[in-house]
Amino acid sequence: MLPLVVAGGVVTVIMGFILVVLLISWFSNPPFGLGNAPPQPVAFPHTVHVADNNIQCEFCHRNVTKGEAATVPAVESCLFCHQEIDGGSSTTSANSQAEIQKVRDAFDSETPIDWERVHRLPDHVRFIHESHIRYFTDDDPTKKYGINGEELKETLDVALTCTICHGDVGNKTVVQPKTGQSLKMGTCLDCHRNNNVPTDCTVCHK
């Protein structure tokens, strides 16, 4: 009798453990910070560029209004500004000077910076940035709705459209996937249903 009780207890513990792991991985996104992006080769602060200096998203992510991928800018684009701007001369900005020097070195040695990808969709999903930005920045009179079903009163600009999914990236020093929406399929479907746009599988999966 005793061995049976022990075996039953062991099975219960194992099943409970599996259940807990599954629940955590489903409801916390990402679980235990496992989904965080690895550290970037250059500590790029979005706060300085966007919040302090008011640079628009599409100034660097140039392809976002033109095609599928938003694209990370080439080193040459950084040098538009940073061949003049060197991050200040005080001792507090020594760190940012060092980071800017990394970018200049990369330009001089003609090696692209190996940025770590933060938002990664599975291979079977096709997402087009351009058509989503075109929809929300369009000034036609039809009403538009956000992900949570709230009505968007005025026409958005490109930067505000980005924050719908990506969150307030402009005020984040380090961008992580959990900065914005979870980018699960339910998030996409909610927004598509709110705006009454097609939800056929082949719109995204093909």
């Binding site: 096709r126 087009i128 351009e130 058509s131 075109r134 082949t202 719109v203 093909k206």
Partner: peptide, 17 residues
């Protein structure tokens, strides 16, 4: 065979653009 549905979606985006 999908009837090349990716071409249909691509064409729709082109028309909308």
């Amino acid at each position: 065979c999908t009837f090349c549905v990716q071409r249909l979606r691509r064409g729709e985006v082109n028309v909308e653009q």
